[in-house]
Design a protein around this nucleic acid. Structure first.
Lengths: 226, 226
DNA sequence: TGTACATCAGTGAACGCGCGTTCACTGATGTAC
DNA sequence: TGTACATCAGTGAACGCGCGTTCACTGATGTAC
């Protein structure tokens, strides 16, 4: 056995990695164009000038490809958020605003990927698998960081739920985070998820409303709630 | 032509209405069990002891059945919300709390129907059709009512978006509603949508968190935001 | 540097399945006289 | 009240399609000596 095949850096490995990437790109294009659940292995293969069975050289099956897309998307979202928090202004409030806008911008730019993350398990697909929970941590970490920097949290919050957030914090490596920050961040995440969800499904558009104002109000309210 | 067939109350019409209802019930059961997009005309027919083509006596096609389900669901949600607002305590704040809990309860009881309402158009299905927008109005009206009763809104809000909410209000028969109430209600709706969405997809469960606390915090924050 | 061999990407046929929808039809049901 | 007729629910066959996945295979590519 050659060293390359062990370390995964031989020419064949590079080729494999590249084709895997092309498959994923084609899959995303398909999701983007064909709407949710328009992900067909045969169609992807055709787009790459291959036949369907060839894809099984690169992914064990359809679910495996899907999992890869989800993990990638979480990673991408997390770096978007982290970038917004890092390169933003020093003022913590302004940085949180930047993070909120980054969240929204990411979802609007790639709604199909956003759906992939937060939509129901697509027929029998187990979204609660440990892999996926783990993949979602960096994005949450970015949010927790930004909220932590913002203010001294009210130590009384989150009341009866404090124990749950404490456990959650320990389990996922967020040890330094006060319960109140965890709770507040989770609520903010839920709010953003709701606004972004309505926006990408066209609900605000069908109301004739530009939701930008709502995001502004959201940030203002959040600052006041701490 | 008989009078009955004109007015739609003859024995055949009653039979048709009943079978239509059975078809819808079977469809909902299928959505509930099979996950989203598990709605198959053939499977529904089989469940009713019929063959597939028989359904075309009752619905023009698959989309038509779907539209019916969506309209029904909006109606059901609206009456749930209206009931919560009517039968609740006289205190407006407590009534809003009741409405929030009714919204959550409805979504949790029938997540498949909630998804039907707020999920992306299912492959080419036009969710923005006028029929559906109209069907969603009563639910929104219940929310607007509860928020209206709560407090004198800040007349400065919603800033630059006031004109949009004014137009929206006129277009959908919410003439009496101040812009600030419309904006606040929309934001509250988005928040609820986000929390409920995360909850029915199991995101809180996978965190080990019971979101009840978050709903309480939501209501408290909302009262403070007015 | 050249050759023999192992690896592995990709093919084409096939499996079994389910889908929405159309069509010509049969047979029961309700209705008009 | 009885009979003839129109209505219409439901069937069964068929259309054309696409799906994920398996299998035995060919032929190119990289590798070891």
């Amino acid at each position: 056995m050659a060293a390359d095949s062990r370390t995964g850096t031989g020419p064949r490995d590079r080729f494999r990695a590249q084709v895997r990437q092309e498959v994923k790109t084609a899959a995303l294009r398909q999701l983007a164009e064909g709407g949710p659940e328009a992900l067909s292995l045969n169609a992807i293969a055709k787009q790459l000038g291959m036949t369907g069975p060839a894809l099984y050289r690169y992914f064990a099956n359809r679910d495996s490809l899907l999992t890869d897309l989800v993990v990638d998307a979480y990673g991408d979202l997390a770096s978007s958020l982290a970038r917004a928090a890092e390169t933003g202004p020093a003022d913590p409030a302004a940085r949180l605003t930047g993070l909120v806008h980054a969240y929204r911008a990411w979802a609007l730019a790639e709604p199909h990927r956003y759906r992939l993350l937060f939509r129901a398990p697509l027929q029998g697909y187990d979204a609660q698998a440990a892999t996926l929970v783990e993949a979602s941590q960096p994005a949450m970490a970015a949010l927790l960081d930004a909220v932590s920097a913002l203010a001294e949290p009210d130590p009384r919050a989150p009341g009866g739920a404090a124990a749950q957030f404490r456990e959650w914090r320990e389990r996922h490596g967020f040890e330094g985070v006060p319960e109140a920050v965890a709770a507040r961040s989770t609520l903010l995440w839920a709010h953003l998820h709701g606004m972004v969800g309505l926006e990408i499904e066209g609900n605000f558009a069908s109301m004739g409303v530009d939701p930008s104002y709502l995001y502004e109000a959201e940030v203002a309210d959040f600052a006041r709630s701490l």
